[in-house]
Amino acid sequence: MKSVQVSWARSADAHEGLPALLDPVERARYEATVDPATRNRFLVGCALSRRILGELLGVPPEEVPLRRACPTCGGPHGKPRLAVPAGYDFSVTHSGDVVGVAVCRGAEVGLDVEEAGTALDVDAAARTALSPRESAALYALPPAERKPAFLRVWTRKEAVLKALGVGLRAPLRELEVSAPAASPTVLAWPDLLGDHPGTTLTDLTVDGVHPAAVAVTTGVRTPS
């Protein structure tokens, strides 16, 4: 597996000096966000990623060249990427107060975290996101264990989709991962995404309670 640098912060780390690090697209989104908690998460995520990438590239954080392009509409709200061929990919995630950034060189990377205390209707979420085999594994567990088990599976799926840059547009039930207690791996790919044999998954836990996952993909084999 390629080496991945993962860094964590808190939305409470936001301060008045950070907006100066944002580019015009980021600043416009930041200023247009009304909810203070969402504003702070976005600000900290942008600032943390810029500081890490700036150190790697040897430039000030505010000068890190980024681009965003939605693969569907071309708008400036897709997965952020470096606008220069430096060989680094990165992924930003946040849930509740937790903000994370993963950076990898020579491969695509996706990072996801879910706050353990988040309100969740496990039954409804499972119907939307889990394959029949994943659902069977979930409901074989005692009721008290189902929420953390679902969040573990969810972080794996979202990390993979973020590494591929497709987000939640992909059919979640067709992207199948291993059972929560098993070593993390992708078992089945949606036809829409093709097959990505070079993908690896790693489970993480933040502060001992919040499930997270990082995915790295180095190759693609599209369907014939």
Rank of each mutant, 00 (worst) to 15 (best):
T72Q: 13
K157S: 05
V214D: 01
A163F: 02
R10C: 09
G74T: 06
L164F: 03
C46S: 14
D97R: 07
K2G: 11
S95V: 05
A188E: 09
T205Y: 06
Q5K: 10
V34W: 15
P65N: 07
S11N: 12
G96W: 06
G58W: 07
D35N: 15
R169K: 12
A163M: 05
V34R: 15
C46L: 03
L56A: 03
Q5S: 11
V153K: 03
G194A: 05
V84Y: 07
E115F: 11
I52D: 08
C70K: 13
R127S: 09
L164Q: 05
G219A: 13
V153H: 01
A37Y: 04
A181N: 05
A20E: 15
G100I: 01
A137L: 13
D121W: 07
R133K: 13
V206E: 11
V160W: 03
V153I: 13
G54A: 06
T200V: 14
K2Y: 12
R221N: 08
G208M: 00
V214H: 02
V160I: 01
G17Y: 03
V92A: 07
A28S: 10
G87D: 09
K147W: 12
A188L: 11
T217W: 07
E115C: 09
P85I: 04
R67L: 05
A126F: 02
A129H: 10
V122K: 05
A9H: 10
Y139V: 02
G17A: 10
T200Q: 14
E16Y: 07
Q5D: 15
A181W: 11
R221L: 13
A28R: 15
A12C: 09
A119W: 14
L138W: 08
S135T: 10
H94K: 11
G117N: 08
Q5W: 13
L56I: 04
G198S: 10
L21Q: 00
P85Q: 06
D89M: 08
A12H: 12
Y88Q: 01
V99D: 08
G58E: 09
P223I: 13
P36F: 13
H196C: 09
V64Q: 07
W154M: 00
A170H: 06
L18P: 03
T72H: 14
V98H: 09
D203Q: 06
A212P: 00
P19S: 13
G110F: 00
S7M: 06
G117F: 12
A37R: 15
A144H: 11
A181L: 12
A144F: 08
